[in-house]
């Protein structure tokens, strides 16, 4: 029983990370129909910058902020410089973002090398936390990570549901042309949303670098998990990203614990099953 609960907690930790990574991805997709294949590269960039900031200042939250801002700036730059030129031509945007992610991954490999980085944790988070009921220790950072994901999820929901920017984003999802006709600068809004997506990716990168570690290849790992999460949860829906992340994170950890050889196949089976019965994803809206 203890084992099962620990595996469940591990699954929740992973789900929290997947949600952080996928929320930015699905936000960008929801508004602009852009599949940002450079999302994983932005995440890794955030992780590296967060590592540098945390090492230079010694303050962990500053690392998260720095990594988030760096990736936000990177995301805005990508949308402003390249992807924004092909707005409406989704295939070309996707291919261009693949090219960008290849270049970014290679340049980051050049600068940071192939070694694994881990952000040093503040003393308060470095140890374990004795769980009530179970009576076993569990890494504090992982619990913080779960809490962080919940806070980010609620904040994101509040931004989208309650603020003016959120109203504009929702209007853009429903009818981009109408929004433009009402006199909103759609190009600027797109850049802001891209920056927001980058911010989420960058923070996820720093958190991943704290709770686990980052290395070349982390970018692809999170890009793929984001893809699967949004395919399962439904494209463009933040709630769907949360649901998808929960399903995939738990499935992966249970798979790893109870059927080690075929852990990946579980994830894949969930995706195929969802595609078969609900192609738009569990909480996604139908395209037609």
């Amino acid at each position: 029983m203890t084992f099962f609960l620990i595996v469940t907690l591990n699954g929740l930790t992973l789900a929290a990370l997947y949600f952080l990574a996928a929320s930015g991805f699905t936000l960008i997709f929801g508004l602009m129909r852009t599949v940002n294949m450079a999302h994983g590269a932005l995440l890794l960039l955030g992780g590296y910058v967060g590592f540098e900031v945390a090492r230079a200042t010694g303050v962990w939250p500053l690392g998260i902020l720095g990594g988030g801002l760096a990736a936000a700036f990177g995301g805005a730059l990508i949308q402003f410089g390249i992807l924004g030129r092909f707005q409406g031509d989704e295939l070309r945007q996707t291919l261009a973002s693949i090219a960008i992610s290849i270049i970014m991954a290679d340049l980051m490999l050049w600068y940071w090398g192939g070694i694994t980085y881990q952000v040093a944790l503040p003393d308060a988070l470095a140890g374990g936390f004795k769980l009530p009921l179970l009576g076993v220790g569990y890494a504090s950072i992982r619990l913080v990570l779960i809490a962080f994901a919940v806070v980010v999820g609620i904040t994101l929901w509040l931004i989208i549901a309650k603020t003016r920017l959120g109203a504009i984003i929702r209007a853009g999802v429903d009818d981009r042309e109408m929004l433009r006709a009402l006199g909103f600068d759609v190009a600027k809004i797109f850049i802001i949303v891209f920056a927001l997506g980058g911010l989420l990716a960058g923070m996820a990168g720093v958190v991943a670098a704290s709770a686990l570690s980052i290395a070349p290849g982390t970018d692809l790992q999170f890009l793929l998990s984001s893809l699967v999460v949004v395919i399962v949860g439904g494209m463009g829906s933040v709630g769907g990203a949360a649901l998808g992340a929960l399903l995939i994170g738990l499935a992966e950890q249970y798979g790893l614990a109870y059927a080690p050889t075929y852990g990946v196949v579980f994830t894949f089976a969930i995706m195929v099953f969802v595609l078969a019965v609900r192609p738009q994803g569990l909480l996604g809206r139908s395209e037609t």
Binding site: A99, I103, A105, W110
Partner: peptide
């Protein structure tokens, strides 16, 4: 740095 080169070529072709 081959990947950077191929990425740039790809980007140039796409754009």
């Amino acid at each position: 740095r081959f990947n950077t080169l191929i990425g740039l070529v790809l980007l140039a072709i796409i754009m």
